[in-house]
Computed example of a mutant assay.
Amino acid sequence: MPAAATRTKPKPTQSTARRPVPLDLPYSPVAKRPLPPGRPREWYVTHNRRLKAMRLAIALLDSGVYVPNQARDETIRSTAEQIGVHPPSDMTCHMVRALIRYSR
């Protein structure tokens, strides 16, 4: 009997990609490292904006917001308050929607 015929299929597991996760779980921030010195100020501003947008997009996806149309500015700002970050600017909200759009 061939070896392939004796193998059993792995059991399917439930994906957590579409399962809503409550935001009341304790938020544990990632350990911060110093940024590289010598870059222009605009680089640091953009870098920090991208990090904030990523954190917010992850929190929104975990809470069940999968479509950019669902992520209005008010929704994004209330999520920022829940996870403990400063309210995002309009540009950061735009970046969050872009990240959600490309997460699919």
Rank of each mutant, 00 (worst) to 15 (best):
P2Y: 00
A3T: 10
A3W: 03
A4R: 09
A4T: 12
T6D: 11
T6G: 06
T6V: 14
T6Q: 08
R7D: 14
R7A: 14
T8S: 12
T8H: 05
T8A: 11
K9Y: 02
K9P: 06
K9S: 13
K9L: 12
P10N: 09
P10T: 13
P10Q: 10
K11Y: 10
K11P: 09
Q14T: 11
Q14V: 06
S15F: 02
S15T: 15
T16Y: 04
A17Y: 03
A17R: 15
R18N: 13
R18K: 13
R19F: 06
P20M: 01
V21H: 11
V21F: 10
V21A: 12
P22R: 13
P22Y: 12
P22M: 08
P22K: 10
P22F: 11
D24T: 15
D24N: 15
D24Q: 09
L25Y: 15
L25N: 13
L25D: 12
Y27R: 11
Y27Q: 14
S28R: 11
P29N: 04
V30W: 01
K32R: 13
P34W: 06
P34N: 12
L35T: 12
P37V: 14
P37Y: 01
G38T: 06
G38Q: 09
R39D: 14
R39C: 12
R39E: 15
P40V: 13
R41F: 09
R41A: 15
E42C: 05
E42T: 12
E42Y: 07
W43P: 09
Y44A: 13
V45Y: 00
V45K: 01
T46A: 08
H47P: 05
H47Q: 14
N48G: 06
N48Y: 00
R49F: 02
R49M: 13
R50C: 11
L51H: 10
L51S: 12
A53H: 02
A53S: 10
A53D: 03
L56W: 03
L56E: 10
L56K: 08
L56C: 10
A57K: 04
A59Q: 04
A59Y: 03
A59F: 02
L60R: 06
L61N: 06
L61G: 09
D62F: 03
D62W: 02
G64R: 05
G64K: 04
V65S: 04
Y66C: 06
V67W: 00
V67L: 07
V67M: 04
Q70C: 07
A71W: 00
A71I: 03
A71V: 06
A71R: 01
R72F: 02
R72G: 13
D73A: 14
D73W: 00
T75E: 09
T75C: 07
T75G: 01
I76E: 01
R77M: 07
T79L: 01
A80I: 06
E81Q: 14
E81R: 15
Q82S: 13
Q82W: 03
Q82A: 15
G84W: 07
V85E: 15
V85M: 02
H86I: 08
H86Y: 06
P88M: 01
P88K: 01
P88W: 00
P88Y: 00
S89D: 13
D90F: 01
D90R: 02
T92D: 05
C93I: 08
H94P: 00
V96C: 02
R97E: 03
R97V: 09
R97M: 07
R97G: 08
A98N: 11
I100G: 08
I100Q: 07
Y102I: 09
Y102K: 04
S103N: 10
R104W: 07
R104N: 04
